[in-house]
């Protein structure tokens, strides 16, 4: 009974924030597709096809980041413009279930893009089953980081214009500029360290090394995971601290 109730509450968030939007306005499904694919196309053409596999992995990371960050705009819109969150606050749904449902809805929203990118990856990225498993964990981690960051930002955002600004700033900072679509070795050494300010650099290097495109020794590999998980836990903790279901 309890589990079915929680399932229904999760489904409400997923339906409102993704499925109903996709059913009522099918054009939104193209929305998440354009940015990752357009950059992948540019990188592929500019490298005469040599960066297609790395680019495909990068597009997957960008999709995860974009999906996660989207939660800040959606939460802010539903809270500030629709006052829907106030209706949910006063209902039996808890904050955790509402946010978790919204997080899943972001993934559901990007299912068409995700499907296409996974097909591209399976076609062009040669990796073992175990490597794919780790790449999956890597993607889940960067998605968790993005969701936590998006949620944290939504608590600062008082209207949708501010949310759009956050999204506009974060997307290039996290997925276009860092070495997500290309190997980090393409960046000259003194500047290479700057790219490590972005957690997507770690996620990309993990994925690229697992697919055999960049050489990383075991110690570096473990370090990449430690930093990526560390940043994710830190942002997650900050988001939890900042979150308030009931205002003071």
């Amino acid at each position: 009974m309890k589990i079915s109730r929680i399932f229904n509450q999760l489904m409400a968030s997923i339906l409102v924030n993704s499925i109903y939007a996709m059913v009522n306005y099918p054009v939104v499904m193209i929305n998440t597709l354009l940015a990752p694919l357009s950059i992948l196309a540019v990188v592929t053409f500019a490298s005469h096809g040599s960066l297609l596999p790395i680019g495909a992995l990068g597009a997957l990371i960008m999709n995860m980041v974009q999906s996660g960050i989207s939660i800040q705009g959606d939460l802010s819109h539903l809270k500030n413009d629709m006052k829907l969150q106030d209706m949910v606050v006063s209902s039996p749904t808890s904050a955790g279930i509402y946010i978790f449902g919204m997080a899943i809805s972001e993934i559901v929203y990007s299912i068409p893009t995700l499907t296409l990118l996974l097909i591209l990856n399976f076609l062009f990225v040669k990796a073992s089953l175990f490597a794919w498993f780790l790449i999956f964990i890597d993607m889940a981690t960067i998605f968790t980081f993005s969701i936590a960051l998006g949620f944290l930002l939504s608590t600062f955002s008082s209207d949708i214009v501010q949310s759009w600004a956050f999204a506009g700033i974060l997307s290039p900072l996290l997925s276009t500029i860092p070495p997500v679509y290309y190997p980090i070795t393409f960046i000259p050494l003194p500047y290479r360290y700057i790219s490590y300010l972005s957690p997507t650099t770690y996620a990309a290097e993990i994925a690229q090394s697992l697919a055999g495109y960049v050489p990383v020794n075991i110690y570096e590999f473990i370090m990449l995971w430690i930093v990526l998980i560390g940043i994710t836990v830190l942002i997650f903790f900050l988001a939890l601290k900042k979150s308030r279901w009931r205002e003071v």
Binding site: A12, L15, V16, Y20, Y25, M82, K83, M87, S91, T93
Partner: peptide, 19 residues
């Protein structure tokens, strides 16, 4: 409060009940 514009009335009511 505003009715979410991309939902229908039935979707609005039923999703609230699911919450």
């Amino acid at each position: 409060a505003r009715a979410v514009p991309w939902l229908t009335p039935l979707q609005t009511v039923s999703s609230y009940l699911m919450w």
